[in-house]
Computed example of a mutant assay.
Amino acid sequence: MEMFFHVGGAEVILFRQWHTRDSAGIAASMIGIILLTIIYEGIKSYRELLFSRMHILQTVVHVIQLVIGYFLMLIFMTYNAWLCIAVALGAALGYWVFSWEKSSGNNIDCCL
């Protein structure tokens, strides 16, 4: 089986029921994938902040983050260029939205 990037509109994404047939289906799927990736980045950025006292809840959220991450990897492995772009755009948007503190330097608690 050869694996290569392609730009077709017919694609099965993760589940047999998530099947696109044309460019409109790919576009709608791209929006869903971008949102899923933004959620993944949000969970990744804020998991420890939100649930640092409740270890069992933090564990559950970690598993959710892990499963979403594997779903995104499998979506990327369809080698559909549009879906790969959606994952990359979602990661960029999610990082931009949820990682302001990391990049601004405002979270430095040194020497207070």
Results as ranks from 00 to 15, higher is better:
M1R: 04
M1C: 13
M1D: 08
M1L: 15
H6Q: 13
G8I: 06
G8P: 04
G8A: 07
G9K: 05
G9R: 11
E11N: 07
V12R: 15
V12N: 15
L14G: 03
Q17E: 14
H19G: 00
T20S: 12
T20R: 04
S23H: 06
I26Y: 02
A28F: 02
S29K: 00
S29L: 04
I31Y: 01
I31N: 03
I33Q: 00
I33R: 01
I34P: 00
T37L: 03
T37M: 01
I38A: 01
Y40G: 00
E41W: 04
G42D: 01
G42P: 02
K44Y: 13
K44P: 02
Y46T: 00
R47V: 00
R47G: 11
E48Y: 04
L49E: 11
L49P: 03
L50I: 00
L50Q: 01
S52K: 02
R53Y: 03
M54D: 14
M54V: 04
L57M: 06
L57N: 03
T59H: 07
T59I: 08
T59P: 09
V60F: 02
V61T: 12
H62P: 02
V63G: 09
L66T: 03
V67P: 02
V67T: 01
I68S: 11
G69I: 08
Y70T: 14
Y70E: 08
Y70V: 11
F71S: 10
F71W: 04
L72T: 11
L72W: 09
M73R: 12
L74E: 12
I75H: 05
I75A: 11
I75C: 10
F76L: 13
Y79G: 04
A81L: 15
L83N: 11
C84E: 12
I85R: 03
I85S: 02
A86V: 05
A86D: 02
A88H: 03
L89A: 15
G90E: 15
A92I: 13
L93Y: 09
Y95A: 13
W96A: 13
W96M: 08
W96G: 10
V97F: 14
V97K: 03
F98A: 11
F98D: 01
W100A: 15
W100C: 11
N107W: 10
I108Q: 13
I108K: 14
C110W: 12
L112C: 15
